[in-house]
Every structure is written in C-alpha cells, then in structure tokens.
Nucleic acid binder design. Structure first.
Lengths: 193, 193
DNA sequence: CGTCTATTTGAATGTACTCAAAAGCGGTGG
DNA sequence: CCACCGCTTTTGAGTACATTCAAATAGACG
C-alpha cells in the first residue's frame, strides 16, 4: 500500500520537507478492511481519522426503529471519521463500515495532536480540510431545504458518480432522506439510468 | 464598540501576545448595521467574514419562486459568512441580513490571508472554528434525516433559545425546512410555549 | 390610525411513507 | 455448478404528513 496518494492529498494544500514527510508517515497505520467490516461502531470510542486509499466507506446514524441515515460516503482520496466524537474523544454516534474491500490509513487523535505541535503546517492543512467539509455540508443542507427528492437524487448522481456505482439504492435513499421504495418509484417515473 | 468579546473568542483557542493582538485588531472593521439591512446580497462578491459583537444576523438561500431557506442564524460571539463564496471569492449564493440592530467586526479575505501568514496561530484558530462549524452542520443533517418536524422544532428551541427569541416563526420554519403554516399548526397541537 | 407582514385556521391536495407481496440478484454451501 | 437463502428492488394500495391556497386575525411600525 503505497503512500503516493495520501502525500499528494497533503501536497494539494501544504508542502513538506523530507523529515516532515517521514514523521507524518510514521504516524499512519495502513489497514486493509474487507467488505461489510465495521471500522467504528456506535458507542465505541472514535480514536482515528481515516484516509481512504482505495475502496468505499459509509458513515451512518442509527435512529429509532433501526432506521439508518447515511451521513457520508468516502471513496479514494477522502478523509472520514465521526468528527464530533473524534475531536472530543466521546463514544461514537456514527457507525462506519466498508461498502467494498478497502485500504486506508488511520491516524490516531493523539498522533494528530502531536503532528499539530511538531509540524504546525498541518493546522493549515486540516483548516482547509475542515473548511471544505463545512462548505460541503452546508451545500447539502441548502439542497435538502430547497430541492425535491428527485432533484437531490439527480444531483447526487452527477456529483458523486463513483459513489453511486458502488453503493446500493437503499444506501443512496438513506443519504437523501427518503425510503428505498420511494427512490425506486422516482427512478421508474423518470426512467433515470 | 469594544474588543473584549472578540478577543475572548480568540483566546478560547489560541493565545496572542500584545503585538499579535494589535495586528489582528488593525485588520478588523467595526460596523453597526440596523435591523433589516443587507450585509451580503446573493450575486455580490462575498469579501468578508463577520464576527457578531451584538445583535442577530441571518443567512438564507433564495430558491425558486421566492422560497427562502435559512441556512444559519448568528448571535453575539458567532462568526458568519457565505463560506463557499468567501473562500473562493465567488458571487454569493446566500443573502445575509440583520434580524435586529447589530454590531459586528468584519474581516476581509485578503486580510485574513495576511493574518495566516503573519500569525500562523490563526490557522489553528480557524481550523477549530471550521471544525466546529462542520460538526454543527453534520449534526443538523443527522437531525434533518432522522427526526420529525416537531422534534426538530423543540430541539431548535432548546439549542438556540436566544435565537428563538429574536427571529420570527416564519424564519424558524424556513430554517427547519417546513412552511410557516405547518409550524403554526405544530405549535397549536403541542401548545408549545 | 392605517398599512404591511406575520400568524392562525381550515379545506383540499400532493408528496412521501407504511405495509405487503413479488421479483431480482448475489453469495454460499452442498 | 446449481439451488437455496437473504437482502435489495420493484410495484401497488392505503395512509399520513406536510403543502398550497385562501381568508381571517393579530402584531409591528411608520
């Protein structure tokens, strides 16, 4: 599992010298997970933030009556964790599972904190990562408030075509906030795809 | 308009020496705005991020057929802007108005960029601000996906009691993603407040 | 005081859900 | 390799939640 992708991800926003790169890499724990395996379970302590090197992960919230709400999908080159519980080291609200066999790098909270101290440039890096995540979530809220289920679905397909190929309709429905049955009828009406 | 509140806001996450404080303050532009005045209009370039010193602001998205969706409210001690358009210096998607007479400090994008260079600790500060904003938006998405309109309303009241006192029901409804008529019947059913 | 907007109320409608059952698809073991 | 099992997807009928439209009332502001 090579480190080119994650280093390129970092290099998008900050430049590191050789020592800094080595130190950063020394903190990462590569991991291969198979389809359906659970990386984080609701209630567990959320110890790491994950960078997806290959594959697809899904984070969801389990509401009343076993109703799942998909909070995010992550494909290659994405960071994913239960941010609230990661930052505050609280029991997770979210469950994170592998949608397909995946490879990731995990970074522990305490190691990230060390990284911030030793290489403050990473404050900048994660400032930008958080900023983008915030903007993305806000855009999603705007869409949820202002668009119909059908429009949200077609937007999802065009914005995340790779994700759409990997995950089930049921999972997409739970991301959009509608039932799988209703998504099915939407597709039938529009003859989408 | 004194600077204690904003300095305390900063001090929650980083500590500055005298020079750094002075430099930071030199970049701020205090501004008093009266009720209903428009700080940012959809389509305009979004040049600043705003810190609310006193009062209440509201950011909303204008969808089809004059339907407003409230994206966020900001009361004293909050930062608010159209983040996407601020960061990318694009025409605003959001409109930001004063719900009541308010006092704020504005910080221009180019000055924030200078601040990052001169006082890198601010990378940390805004990393934390962005992180919190991301977490908050994600929580809102979870609620939108998993709770009923009534539950979201009661949560809103308990989470943002100050905001709830300042804004109209119509504005709250547009934040929750329901019509004002429906919010009115919810309140009647529950005899809430 | 008069005007404008917000809020309430109610009736009719539509969007999305629940429940149920059938069909499709993928994975697994005999 | 096929048969079966479990889960996903489809389809449909009936229902509930939330909207639209309309009109009356209440509040805020000049």
């Amino acid at each position: 599992m090579n480190t080119e992708l994650i280093l390129a991800n970092i290099a998008k926003h900050i430049s590191l010298d050789k020592n800094e790169i080595d130190f950063f890499l020394s903190l990462l724990k590569p991991e291969e997970v198979s389809k359906k395996s659970v990386l984080l379970k609701e209630g567990q302590l959320c110890r790491d933030i994950n960078f997806v090197h290959h594959g697809t992960l899904r984070a969801f919230y389990m509401g009343k009556e076993a109703k799942e709400s998909t909070i995010m999908f992550a494909v290659a080159d994405w960071w994913i964790t239960d941010m609230y519980c990661f930052i505050n080291q609280k029991p997770a609200m979210l469950t994170i599972t592998a949608v397909e066999d995946s490879q990731l790098f995990r970074l522990r909270k305490e190691d990230l904190d060390r990284l911030y101290l030793q290489v403050p440039k990473f404050e900048r890096f994660f400032r930008i990562i958080m900023q983008n995540a915030y903007i993305r979530e806000q855009l999603r809220i705007i869409e949820n408030l202002s668009l119909s289920a059908e429009e949200r679905y077609t937007n999802f397909l065009s914005r995340y075509p790779k994700v759409a190929q990997q995950v089930t309709q049921k999972q997409i429905a739970s991301y959009l906030g509608i039932t799988p049955e209703f998504l099915s009828t939407l597709r039938a009406n529009k003859r989408i795809k």
